[in-house]
Design a protein around this nucleic acid. Sequence first.
DNA 1: GGAATAATCTATACTACTATAGAAATAGAT
DNA 2: ATCTATTTCTATAGTAGTATAGATTATTCC
Lengths: 210, 210
Amino acid sequence: MATERAAARKPSIRKRNDEIFDAAARVFAERGYHGASTQDIADLLGMRQASLYYYFSSKEAALEEVCAIGAAGFVENAEEIAANDAGPTEKLRALASVHITPLAERPDFTRTFLNERKWLPTESRRRIGGMSRRIEAIFEGVIRAGMRQGEFRSDLNVRLTMFGILGMVNSVQIWLDRANKTPSEIAEYLADMAVASVRAVDPPEPEKNI
Amino acid sequence: MATERAAARKPSIRKRNDEIFDAAARVFAERGYHGASTQDIADLLGMRQASLYYYFSSKEAALEEVCAIGAAGFVENAEEIAANDAGPTEKLRALASVHITPLAERPDFTRTFLNERKWLPTESRRRIGGMSRRIEAIFEGVIRAGMRQGEFRSDLNVRLTMFGILGMVNSVQIWLDRANKTPSEIAEYLADMAVASVRAVDPPEPEKNI
DNA sequence: GGAATAATCTATACTACTATAGAAATAGAT
DNA sequence: ATCTATTTCTATAGTAGTATAGATTATTCC
């Protein structure tokens, strides 16, 4: 039993910490960073407002932490897909599709990342911004590959295409609740739209072996 | 001269009023509704904070006014296109394209409408929400028409398609400054993406006369 | 030029929010 | 059983924000 307790200690600390930031994420997502008070977060946890400062040093620090968790959800998924050996069409489809998952599963963190990171002070905004640029770069890489390999139209503007597709999939956070579709239905549908918007019009020469 | 003054009076009142709401829009767009103080607005105008209340009855009322102006820019453009007699493909292209115009020309108002209207109290949020739904309905109407007439794929989900395309064009407000393209280049490009994402794959039978 | 209207000002009540300091309570380790 | 580290608490300083009341200045009209 002593060993069990010992084993449980670290995870339990971890767990309380998670509860704090879950609550912060929820309040930030629902009321916006400036509309959220540390009192709101404390209320959700049933603790005193001042006690929160045991877990973070400032409201801004809490925002950065929540944003970092939110961004990580996107980055990890995207990195994994970028690394596999599927073709550009399938990679783009997968990128767009898995981008929906964090939006559906951790909406408080991802919405805070997407909508509230702009209120971070310069330093932390730069750190979080780096994760955004990583995601953008992965999309751009796949688009470029698709053009090179002839699966996508050759007259695409890589940057605008990336912005357009990311804008489309990110918008899910706004209307997910009104769509009356499951997250995976939405993911598949938007992934198809993304692919349709870039694919070459003339038949893409299936499986070229040189 | 008396007549000139008289003629100038109403417009001048109008003008000052516009300055007030221009400043409010700017501050709301830059700092977010909750991050914006009436003091910030007054500073921009070089007037005292309390004097603003001569022009609006509360900060919330100012937000509703700014949002209404922002939404109107979208609605008017969309209504006009919906009413003309172009085909669905051209209508969708035009809808997506002109949607960019207000985002580029009145960014403070449109960004406030898009990002801050959610903080309005229930009553005014409903009023502004009506304008959003009008825009959505116009997009849906054109998508439906395109399916009916065979220009668009017949397996589209009207609602998801509308959400996807609107999400894409609305996202311009976030990245316009980073795109290094003119608003009209962006407008044309995204309009093409939108059309590409819905067009029928098999040749769309040009000009059917029955 | 003087009355009436419009626009802005001063002063302030009231409320709310962040963050710090230090005390109290809780729980784990020996 | 007690020591120690962790966690939460009370109390509060300090700041900032919205909105109202009523005085004051500027403008228009005759």
